[in-house]
């Protein structure tokens, strides 16, 4: 079932349209990868889906209901989790307080900590440290933990692999695949496809604000991507 659906979404930055009608779906229990070069509009797409960037056209459907222009806080409480580009943590808060911040979504502090520490035991060991002092991989784990510990319906991940060692990325994506198997709709944005193709069930390629290709991540996608990144005829 398509939990999240974007229909002809358009969006602009400072009056310049950067999304020209994006159609995209994320189904429960699946990992959908959204790929594309720098500046294609991937981040903007996720931000529109999470309600923190206004859509100037099209519709955002959540569980079949229209959620275009909804308050991002309401979306967050309804189970949409965006883990933004960079590190989605509060650097000056301790790991514990970072988790505490998620209690607005309806779970208690104890439940969240239990779930987070069970999934990422590393975090339990540095619970009292400021998040800004953690390593890049640990920060992403914390960001993921913040997202996962509160029963998300839709998980939106923006460039999870940025600046991390391949081994760490592989491990993070194992967690992502597992959360998807539990019935969450996962939409993953990556610029470099290798990181995510191992776990993705579906893929779409965004080029200059339009979906240029969509399908299963197979040889067709690889050819499309190499054409895209190596600058062959578009």
């Amino acid at each position: 079932m398509n939990v999240l659906e974007l229909r002809g979404v358009r969006a602009a930055h400072d009056g310049i349209t950067v999304l020209h009608g994006v159609d995209l779906t994320a189904a429960a229990g699946r990992v959908t990868a959204l790929l594309g070069p720098n500046g294609a509009g991937k981040t903007t797409t996720l931000r529109v889906a999470a309600g923190v960037h206004p859509a100037s056209g099209g519709r955002v459907l959540l569980g079949g209901r229209d959620a275009t222009g909804a308050d991002p806080r309401a979306l967050a409480r309804a189970g949409v989790r965006l883990i933004p580009e960079g590190r989605g943590v509060f650097p000056n808060l301790t790991v514990r307080d970072n988790l505490l911040m998620m209690t607005r979504t309806g779970r208690t502090r104890e439940e969240i900590e239990e779930a987070a520490f069970a999934r990422f035991p590393v975090l339990a060991r540095c619970a009292a440290r400021h998040a800004g002092t953690l390593s890049g991989g640990e920060q992403q784990m914390l960001a993921l933990a913040r997202g996962l510990a509160t029963d998300p319906a839709v998980l939106l991940l923006d460039e999870l692999s940025m600046g991390l060692a391949p081994l760490v990325v592989a491990r993070l994506y194992e967690q992502v695949a597992e959360i998807a198997r539990q019935g969450v709709a996962v939409l993953v944005v990556e610029q470099f496809a290798a990181a995510v193709l191992g776990v993705a069930d579906r893929a779409a390629v965004l080029v200059r604000g339009r979906v240029a290709w969509r399908g299963r991540p197979d040889d067709g996608l690889r050819a499309e991507l190499s054409a895209l990144y190596l600058g062959s005829p578009r």
């Binding site: 923190v52 967050a76 933004p84 943590v89 000056n92």
Partner: peptide, 26 residues
């Protein structure tokens, strides 16, 4: 500041307002 959610939210706000919204905070 250190024992309540309101306090954590106050400190979180200066770090990243958008992230606070994404967590359902104000």
């Amino acid at each position: 500041l250190h024992r309540t959610r309101t306090g954590a939210e106050m400190r979180a706000t200066v770090d990243d307002r958008t992230l606070v919204v994404l967590a359902g905070g104000d």
